[in-house]
Design a binder for these strands. Structure first.
Length: 407
RNA sequence: GGGGAGAUACCCAAGCGGUCAACGGGAUCAGACUGUAAAUCUGACGGCUUCGCCUUCGAAGGUUCGAAUCCUUCUCUCCCCA
């Protein structure tokens, strides 16, 4: 189990490596990952923990997905530059409702898998009791020495956030008591929080507890994973369409393809390695596979197929012309007959954030209508531009948008 | 509570009375080259009815022909002492 996941790239570091490996091999253990509901959708950054948990479940272990409804009220300062804005309980609740169905695409809660919200035990904690029972096990000296707080010790760390670590450690203890959970996993930025949990269990319960972190991913060129020009890449199709999601993965850097296939798909490693062997322009096949598999995981096979077809019809010129999944905007026919300002429409469709930007784009040669470059700033879209009842706009090399005309 | 430092565009960071829409770097975007890749080179990077105009330098006032730059008050942040 541990070996498999190491091979797929899910391993950064762990506590008690030998003992943990032995346990995972010989026993069925219970492990957990926590997710703080800070938005109403998960994003690409959550994929590794989700996949990690999913692999554990498929490997036969019991899993717990912990919703951080309680901890999200505090905000984890680990590795953060500044304090998160405070969320209300209503917001947290609606965030959780948005996230749950997304988790269910990866995890199967029909068996003995557990889904709990830590507000269940954090909400009504008694402060004095908590300090006496839990707080006494924490050394401030030690906490201050953690790397994760380094930035914040320079820019400011409030007492509120400083408590986060105790709460997360307490979560682990609570899950250990309730469900005999013995392993906590998470991103490597959670290392400090995780070991404080294992230490707490070992100290208070005198029982074994383990921690395991996943690597924090950056692309080969050092960019943060899942960041696009528009911000994070979300799993919710309302925030990031299946088409955009698909495109993100197709545009993976060559050197990352094999790594990503291992991490973000369930393809057997043999197949991953085969795909990773492809060279030169053939690597695109591997990218197509990667994009298809990841999109299908989240949006379903059907949507993945549509996204793929849409992309192919745009990028490989001829062939299938099913563009139905390319982002589109509908406008009235009479608007078109009056002529639509080219900058205006780029602004409306979201291809540009302002007319100034559209102007700039054009002066740099990035404005296209039906794949023809438009150099005239006074250009008006008219009926002459219609092709099969629609007009295809393009900004730069690969941002497409369809205009659908409606009577 | 006392003393000190600081708040500049997406981020970092210059500027310290006019030549500032504001140096520089990063991020981002476009063009060339390619394979819807990377690297590289070039250009752009507040808004607009774009050879010009408008709104920005924590907030509000004030001094001045003229302020991001000087003064006053306020808000927030960091550091040192308690």
């Amino acid at each position: 189990m541990l070996e498999d996941l190491k091979e797929r790239g899910f391993f950064q570091q762990s506590t008690h490596p030998e003992e943990l490996a032995k346990r995972l091999k010989e026993d069925r253990i219970c492990c957990y990952v926590g997710f703080d509901p800070t938005a109403d959708s998960l994003h690409v950054g959550h994929l590794i923990p989700l996949m990690g948990l999913a692999h554990m479940q498929r490997g036969g272990h019991q899993i717990i997905a912990l919703m951080g409804g309680g901890t999200a009220m505090i905000g984890d300062p680990s590795g953060k530059t500044e304090m998160r804005k405070m969320l209300t309980e209503e917001q947290l609740q609606s965030n959780i409702e948005g996230i749950l169905p997304q988790m269910e695409r990866f995890l199967d809660f029909s068996g003995d898998a557990i889904l709990v919200n830590n507000s269940e035990w954090l909400r009504d904690l008694n402060y004095i009791d908590f300090l006496r029972d839990i707080g006494r096990h924490f050394s401030v000296n030690r906490m201050l020495s953690f790397e994760t707080y380094k930035i914040r010790l320079e820019t400011g760390l409030s007492f509120l956030e400083f408590n986060y670590q105790l709460l997360q450690a307490f979560d682990f203890l609570e899950l250990n008591r309730r469900y005999n959970c013995t392993l906590q996993m998470g991103g490597d930025d959670q290392w400090a929080n995780i070991i404080s949990g294992t230490d707490l269990i070992r100290r208070v319960e005198r029982k074994d507890a383990f921690g395991w972190t996943y690597p924090l991913l950056t692309t080969s060129s050092g960019k943060k994973m899942g960041k696009t020009e528009k911000g994070a890449l979300w799993l919710d199709p309302k925030r990031t369409s299946a088409y955009d999601y698909f495109q993100y993965w197709v545009n993976t850097e060559d050197t990352d393809v094999e790594k990503f296939l291992a991490l973000f798909t369930f393809l057997p490693m043999d197949e991953v390695r085969e795909l990773g062997k492809l060279q030169g322009a053939d690597i695109r096949q591997a990218k197509q596979r990667l994009a298809f598999e990841t999109t299908a995981l989240i949006h379903g096979k059907e949507a993945a197929l549509q996204a793929q077809e849409a992309a192919q019809s745009l990028f490989s010129g001829a062939g299938k012309s099913d563009k139905s999944n390319v982002p589109s905007t509908t406008i009235a026919a009479n608007e078109l007959s009056e002529g639509i300002d080219i900058f205006e429409i780029f602004l409306q469709t979201g291809l540009c954030k302002s007319k100034g930007e559209a102007r700039r784009l054009q002066s740099q040669g990035g404005v296209y209508v039906n794949d023809e470059r438009i150099d005239n700033p006074d250009y008006k879209l008219g009926e002459a531009d219609l092709q099969d009842g629609e007009i295809l706009l393009r900004a730069g090399k690969k941002r497409y948008h369809r205009l659908i005309i409606e009577n």
